[in-house]
């Protein structure tokens, strides 16, 4: 099982050997949702929580927020036991499919959350208006939530999560229901939070979002933490899987496979073992002009699938 790197001082969220199981009916065997989770979210980072459905992502989040209680182990949020309400004073949360009272307006929703976080009346009104504008709901803030689209509810939920001036934000599938522009805006907003020193934990199925946003990713499957990877290091360490070479004119590129052709321009694929210098020489030997030479490296998706397959293998063996 993978373990997190040593817990840094001031880690906003720490799981120490946390297990959780559920029993849907008293005569059924308990279903293990999390099994001995050891993980820490580092201050100031964006940590992506990845895994297939049923991996234990939502359980991990609910344990952090004191909505569930661990069977074994301890969850510490902002330096306190996660079941203490005070641990959530500087924490914002956006649930997966926001389930807010739909007769509230966007403004009322955010102001109510501000009130629960102890904001004074004037401060919460100002903060609600400011945040709703930041998520693009300034026009719709006085409309009831039942008249919002799914993406608008998601935006209102994000404003709600940020109202208490959080130092740590937990986002469960924050991009679901958003259109491409909304996804882009949310990505910028999350990156903006990191700039402001806010730590972010976010669960997602969308690996592309995680790849663009996260400093590290944690991969969960069947309640176990399979890996935690530093994406910055992964970027440097990623293996070259193949080369793609764009060539103008000329004949064959030795050792290459032609995969596309448009007029005189041809796209060749070469194996990972080829050296860049050899490819350049092969293109020149064929009489063509090299337009581009791109190494196709391992993506987060490759890492994700490889990690999951590895865990399947472990389970089968």
């Amino acid at each position: 099982m993978a373990t997190s790197s040593p817990t840094p001082a001031g880690a906003p969220l720490v799981y120490e050997g946390v297990s959780k199981s559920y029993r849907t009916h008293f005569w059924q065997r308990p279903f293990v949702s999390l099994d001995g989770l050891e993980m820490a979210v580092h201050p100031g980072e964006i940590l992506g929580l990845l895994g297939p459905n049923g991996a234990g992502k939502t359980t991990t989040i609910k344990l952090a927020l004191g909505l569930l209680f661990p069977d074994r182990g301890e969850v510490r949020l902002m330096g306190r036991c996660a079941s203490e309400p005070a641990s959530r004073a500087e924490v914002g949360f956006l649930p997966e499919s926001p389930y807010f009272p739909d007769d509230l307006t966007g403004r009322e929703l955010v102001e109510f959350a501000g009130r629960l976080h102890g904001l004074e009346s004037a401060d919460r009104r100002r903060r609600a208006a400011e945040l709703l504008e930041r998520v693009g709901l300034s026009e719709a803030m006085d409309r009831p939530l039942r008249k919002y689209s799914k993406g608008m509810v998601q935006r209102a939920g994000m404003a709600r999560a940020l109202v208490g001036h959080p130092r740590f934000v937990i986002l469960d599938e924050p991009m679901s229901g958003l259109d491409p522009i909304g996804r882009r805006e949310f990505r910028d907003l999350i990156l903006g939070l990191r700039e402001e020193g806010v730590t972010v934990l976010f669960a997602s199925h969308v690996l592309a979002d995680a790849e663009m946003l996260c400093d590290r990713v944690a991969i969960l499957d069947a309640g176990k933490l399979l890996a935690i990877r530093d994406l910055g290091r992964l970027e440097r360490e990623r293996r070259v899987l193949r080369w793609e070479v764009e060539v103008l004119g000329g004949g064959e590129v030795a050792g290459g496979e032609l995969i596309a052709e448009r007029g005189d321009e041809r796209l060749w694929r070469l194996p990972a073992e080829a050296r860049a210098q050899e490819i350049v020489e092969a293109v020149a030997a064929g009489g063509g002009t090299l337009l581009s030479l791109t190494p196709q490296r391992e993506t987060l998706e490759d890492l994700f699938l490889r990690t999951l397959r590895g865990s399947d293998g472990d389970r089968q063996s």
Binding site: K62, L65, G66, L67, P85, A86, S87, R88, A89, V91, F93, P95, P98, Y99, F100, P101, A113, L116, H117, G118, R160, G164
Partner: peptide, 17 residues
């Protein structure tokens, strides 16, 4: 049922409150 309770309790609110 609609889990709005979870949203409320994700704020610094004690269960008894």
């Amino acid at each position: 049922e609609r889990r709005t309770v979870q949203v409320t309790l994700s704020a610094p609110v004690a269960r008894w409150e």
